[in-house]
Amino acid sequence: MTEDYRMVKEGKGAEYWRWTESRWTNPDLDWKQGEVVSAGVDVGSVSTQAVVMVDGKLYAYSNMRTGSDSPESANKAIEWAFEGTGLTLDNLKATVGTGYGRVNVPFATKAITEIACHARGANFMYGPTVRTVLDMGGQDCKAIHCDEKGKVKAFLMNDKCAAGTGRGMEVFADLLGVHINDVGEMSLSVEEEPPPVSSTCVVFAKSEASGLLREGWDKEKVLAAYCSAMAHRIVDLLERIGVEKEFAITGGIAKNPGVVKRLAKELNIEPLPTDMDTQIAGAMGGALFARALYLKKMKKK
């Protein structure tokens, strides 16, 4: 019995793709002192985030896996974001639902496309100098051009195939028995960069990788070959709308240095850094839109 097989048999390691969920509350803010509490909930195909903002400042967020039930995922995410803060849905002045499951956010005031929300969120997270946002999500990949206000100027989305998405990376984590959080670093530990796997399709790339493992390649090398194939694929996609400085990457793949560093090298542009969770950009944009919508409504009255 091989080691990997034994691990799966014993119930360990069968879920290498399970990335870490997280939540956070801003210790320096008290929502009771604020005027407008707004929220954004981004129900994606793989992950769901809820962001709570107080007067346009980040107050709390949660980031968790989307279950089979979208409305339930939205509820769970907002409850987790509220945890320990004393906030309830009644305290929210406005909420915007976004992402793949945006129409399934039961408590949302409005649903807005994730493309607009990501641009707005990235503008907040990375600053107004951001002109190109690359969102690498669970099951799609979006390239967005925006202006200094975070307004979308052009976009392009690939949601037809899994190449260049988080799901593709999860498949490789599972295949190689490497935890998804370690994939990036591990792929960078190779001494010499191997040629990228030639298939852009995840299914074919997986069989190609199996072949390479049989040939005696070690895991690091196979991961490097896949990360660079993914970076290459994204560069190909970006070609259509071009990359203007400054450049920011959002979504789960932004946490994978194996892809980000190779992408930066191929594009010859360094992506902007952030100390925030890159997965919350969409929900953040949602919360900002919710605030704007609420203020607009108040003004009309």
């Binding site: 052009a154 976009f155 195939c161 709308i241």
Partner: peptide, 16 residues
């Protein structure tokens, strides 16, 4: 705003 709908695959670029 330029909205690109479509995809790119092995046989080419297909965007409206």
């Amino acid at each position: 705003m330029l909205a690109n709908y479509g995809y790119k695959d092995g046989s080419g670029d297909f965007f409206i």
